[in-house]
Design a protein around this nucleic acid. Structure first.
Lengths: 338, 338
DNA sequence: TTGAAAGCGCTAACAC
DNA sequence: GTGTTAGCGCTTTCAA
């Protein structure tokens, strides 16, 4: 790569000091009282030489890189990719650039990414935290690193966090079913202590209780993130045993929904006649399912925008106070919950 | 954010110069012949103080940041998100971190991202170029910037590029159909001069010719990237006019395929009985279509890995010679091409 | 065997 | 009005 022109090159060419050039190029000619002609000449030469500032040098000087690090579970997952997209947009709007990485829900990868990003002097982090990463997050707090958790958080750690109204959303979804008279409602969720999942589960339970139905433990199946596909199949098999069929099933994520629908389809169960369905989050996959699917629609754009805004606010704040932002979701009605 | 410990802090604590610390921490104690005890002490203190190197400072010093910039059309598109994922992995394996941005197939956004990334001193770029961005790319070449085009390239600009065997892939797909006796085969593609599309179109035409069928211009519909959905619907309407039905349709991308299948489904056309279908790239959406879809499967992992490897090779090379890497694809057979 | 110092490109306090 | 200079954190040459 050819050498880039620096402020020094311009200074030499014009025959002034680098300071002058810096002032002019940063629009500080007024405060520094730089002469008209000189200023003009500097600008002209800078343009001629096609000067581009070295942001790394500036970053070193200021201790600020205008870069944020984004750590999601898996960027190839459309859910996170969509979040990433809006984060990119909002960051750019505010003059930030985004470094990204995928944690794969694994503690060591998460820690690695955090370290890498911090060593690269990012100004802050947006993280979808991995289960069990409390200590990593606590460490960030201790170091005074600016960060925002997104999509999920921890019950026992107070941090900046931007999440969907998980409890409320699942509560409403289940209420939708109870109001139609369905009582035997099952749920399949991921087996994780992270708040997004716990809140959804609690929303489900609370809705049942409020409808006067006693929750039965066999109605709730928790599947591990790894190998969830098999486990979903097993869960459905157990939940739909002959003689004790459930009226409806709610799924805690779209990946679970897709897998569940496949199994349901394969077993010849008719939706919604034999079984009612509601999904958390949509999926393109629903497109060609024979019945349209009722789902909880998170406002991903708002989540990402709020996360970026909150992060930037924190970066610029001297006395950072933690904030919890809850973004409302909505329910999109389909035939599956009829 | 609290002040990070620097090499200087360690030096002061141990009572040596920063140079010594640098040597030890970079494993150059042998060449620098640093004393055993001192070295040990430095390491111990560094660990105690939890020293982490400032990669920005190092970058300024070396003119190398170990960062690559990734510019895709749209990170929220699963196709590009999947590429991004493997790029992230391969980059990390080689000690690189990835900055990303989406061009939205727009020239100005593409240029903006290029500038931003270069100002941040990335060591190289991986780009899915936008139609008409030849001058941007030529400019990169002139500046001596290290970069690799991915997924698509330009006919008239020689660059490093990693692409699928687009011509071959589409040729084989259409051949599959002609060998079954189908002759009236239509294609819907994006209206862009970029090589990936042109090669696919040429593969289609060549396969027809080789089967002894004269290509009719009304068999090929080119839709714009923006509003492609309506245009796909129109194209299908025109191509499937009563009395002159086509035997089969091939689609140049998965997004076109999905939209086309929706229209086909809505119009009550039976696949494969009334119409045979082959898609370029898969989509989760196919999952619940009543017939399994035959599609060309690109090797996305290999494309991304090769792109990263080629880029890094170029970054380290003094005399860079451009390379064109063609990654073989395969065809996954479904019912839709029966 | 160790340290002083220059320099990567930029900014800004200070001096002229 | 304009220039000098120190310094951000790190590496490395050169001198001691």
């Amino acid at each position: 790569m050819k050498k880039r022109v620096s402020i020094k090159d311009i200074a030499e060419k014009v025959g002034v000091s680098t300071a002058l050039v810096s002032y002019v190029l940063n629009g500080k000619e007024r405060e520094a009282r730089v002469g008209e002609e000189i200023a003009g000449k500097v600008r002209k030469v800078a343009a001629e030489m096609n000067y581009q500032p070295n942001l790394i040098a500036r970053g070193l000087k200021f201790g600020r890189t205008n870069t944020i690090g984004l750590i999601v579970a898996d960027i190839s997952n459309p859910f996170f990719a969509t979040l990433a997209r809006s984060i990119e947009l909002e960051a750019q709007k505010n003059g930030y650039t985004v470094l990204f990485g995928s944690s794969d829900e694994q503690l060591d990868k998460s820690q690695n990414l955090i370290n890498t990003f911090l060593n690269r002097q990012v100004d802050g982090l947006i993280i979808t935290p991995v289960a069990g990463s409390q200590s990593q997050i606590e460490e960030l707090k201790k170091k005074g690193v600016k960060f925002v958790l997104m999509d999920r958080g921890f019950k026992d750690v107070e941090t900046n966090v931007v999440v969907t109204d998980n409890h409320e959303a699942m509560y409403s979804a289940v209420k939708l079913l109870t109001e139609k008279g369905y009582r035997k409602i099952g749920m399949i969720a991921y087996d994780t202590p992270l708040t997004h999942m716990q809140d959804r589960i609690q929303g489900y339970k609370d809705a049942l209780r409020n409808a006067g139905t006693r929750f039965k433990s066999e109605w709730l199946k928790k599947v591990p993130y790894l190998d969830y596909k098999e486990h979903v199949a097993d869960a459905i098999a157990q939940m739909l045993k002959k003689g004790d069929e459930l009226d409806a099933l709610v799924f805690a994520t779209n990946s679970i929904s897709v897998q569940a629908l496949k199994v349901i389809h394969a077993r010849g169960i008719k939706v919604p006649d034999d079984l009612r369905i509601i999904s958390f989050d949509e999926s393109d996959t629903f497109e060609f399912f024979y019945a349209t699917i009722t789902y909880i629609k998170q406002n991903l754009n708002e989540i990402s925008e709020k996360a970026v805004q909150l992060l930037i606010k924190n970066i610029n704040a001297t006395a950072p106070k933690t904030a919890k932002v809850i973004v409302p979701s909505s329910i999109v009605l389909g035939q599956s919950s009829k």
